[in-house]
Amino acid sequence: MTNRAVIHTDKAPEAIGTYSQAVKVDNTVYLSGQIPLNPETMELVDGGFEAQAEQVFKNLAAVCEAANGSLNHIVKLNLYLTDLDNFTVVNEVMARHFRQPFPARAAVGINQLPKGALFEAEGVMVL
């Protein structure tokens, strides 16, 4: 049987549905999608797309740290944008939070996200 553990931290938003912030199996951590919620208020951050992207990566970083890793341990990242015109901005924000070699990544344009968020990201981290 594999070594399976649920990862949780108060430094990232509580789950707003039937999921865990992350699940670790052996040395792989599956990170649930993070939207730009302030973990203290559970409200979306103000300031438009760039501020939301910053909060999403802060939330992901908090979950990575709770699993004894960092954003730079992420090997696959999936991004969901309600407006693909923000693709350049998300690249700029990512460049502030990740270092090379960057993770494999997909960016998907979607119609809407929970709570009216403009951006969500989820990924896989290997420790």
Rank of each mutant, 00 (worst) to 15 (best):
A117T: 01
E65C: 05
I110H: 07
R105T: 09
Q21T: 08
L79S: 13
I35V: 13
N86D: 15
L79I: 15
V93N: 05
N72V: 02
E43D: 14
A22F: 06
N72P: 04
N72R: 01
Q34L: 08
Q52A: 06
N38Q: 11
F98A: 03
V90Y: 13
V89W: 05
V75Q: 14
D26F: 01
A61C: 08
L60Q: 10
D10S: 10
G17Y: 09
K11H: 04
L77S: 12
E43R: 10
R4G: 03
E92W: 04
I16M: 14
H8V: 06
P103Y: 03
S20L: 00
I110N: 09
T41Y: 11
A22I: 08
L79T: 15
P36H: 12
P103N: 02
L71M: 08
K24T: 02
N111F: 10
P114K: 05
V89G: 02
N86F: 12
Q100E: 04
L81M: 11
K115F: 01
K115W: 02
A51H: 09
P114W: 01
Q55R: 14
K24F: 02
V90I: 15
V6Y: 05
R105K: 14
I74T: 06
S32E: 12
V89Y: 04
A22R: 03
E54L: 03
D46T: 12
V25D: 10
S70T: 15
H97M: 01
V23G: 07
R4F: 02
N68M: 04
N86C: 12
A22E: 04
E14D: 10
V75P: 08
T18E: 15
A51G: 07
A12P: 06
T18W: 06
S20V: 00
D26R: 02
V45K: 07
N78K: 14
Q55M: 15
E54T: 00
Q34E: 15
T82L: 12
G69F: 12
A117E: 01
N59E: 14
V75A: 10
N86H: 15
L77G: 10
A53V: 03
D83C: 11
Q21E: 11
V56I: 02
A22V: 07
A104P: 00
A15S: 15
A15T: 09
A53Y: 07
L71V: 05
P36D: 03
L113V: 03
A117Q: 02
N91G: 14
F49C: 00
H97C: 00
V29G: 09
I7K: 00
E14L: 12
V93D: 06
T41H: 09
S70D: 14
L84G: 08
D85P: 05
A51M: 10
G116N: 05
H73A: 13
R99I: 00
Q21C: 08
N91V: 04
A66Y: 06
K58Y: 00
E92F: 01
L37A: 12
D46P: 06
A61W: 07
Y30A: 13
V63G: 06
P39R: 10
Q34H: 11
V29W: 05
G69M: 15
E40S: 11
E92C: 01
F102A: 09
V29Q: 07
N68A: 04
Q55D: 01
G109M: 13
Q52F: 09
V90H: 11
